[in-house]
Design a protein around this nucleic acid. Structure first.
Lengths: 132, 132
DNA sequence: CTGAATCCTTCAGGATACTG
DNA sequence: CAGTATCCTGAAGGATTCAG
């Protein structure tokens, strides 16, 4: 996953794929999951932490900030005790969410197909290592 | 397996988590670019290397193999001299390509918006580091 | 409850050189 | 032309701890 800029390739990357920069906002391990989870409405920190299994508090926090910074999430703090913070998608992110669900549905439709392809590929390679 | 009636839980636990595995096939720095470039039709190695500026031969090779292994690309070797190898999308990948172009067009539409959001966010943080 | 700070590991990806 | 092999860096992410 691509992350932050690398030196030499920076200019080139910008030249070839202006989009990659923006696409990278969603390229992390958790971004898509967070956006999908947050799309259900104003959601609290712990309400995100629970369903997104496996995510650490740290990564949730970091991704939340980045998403907010990129104008994809809105963070609302309620000055109560204990503190209550809610996250929701911006209109821009809602558009993105539509495309994301497209991706997700594709992934669901082809989950097993991909698994089978990999198995077949590996098996073929094992039986015939020299082929190509 | 908490069965609490949260709005977020069902959707994400069943949707995003298993999906992430498949989505990760596309999550690399170059995968999307490669798929989009290869969508034009049968494309040779160097024909991919050129437009996808900044990609190293190594990464192109690695990603090509992974994409092939996952059943997204077909690799066709023509036994000629010099060697000629062509890559094209599988039907499954063509479906994916449709979703991908959706993502790309979103990214193009909102490229500047994201940049501005980031600038505003950073600026606000700079002037008022304690807020939140 | 909602984070921030710190330390440590893993691994994608870059540079470079070699090959059929 | 179309790759492979090796070495290395830097960023992502996990575990744990501290705090408002």
């Amino acid at each position: 996953m691509s992350r932050s800029p690398t030196r030499v390739t920076d200019a080139l990357r910008d030249e070839a794929c202006p989009v990659t920069e923006v696409l990278d906002r969603v390229a992390g391990k958790w971004s898509i999951g967070i956006l999908i989870a947050a799309a259900h409405g104003p959601v609290r920190f712990t309400e995100l932490e629970r369903p997104i299994r496996g995510i650490s508090r740290r990564m949730l926090s970091l991704n939340l900030r980045r998403l907010e910074r990129d104008g994809l999430l809105v963070r609302t703090v309620h000055p109560t005790v204990p503190p209550k913070v809610e996250y929701s998608l911006t209109p821009m992110a809602r558009e993105l969410h539509a495309s994301l669900t497209g991706l997700v549905s594709w992934a669901e439709r082809h989950r097993s197909a991909v698994a089978e392809a990999r198995a077949a590929y590996d098996d073929a390679a094992k039986r015939d290592p020299g082929a190509g």
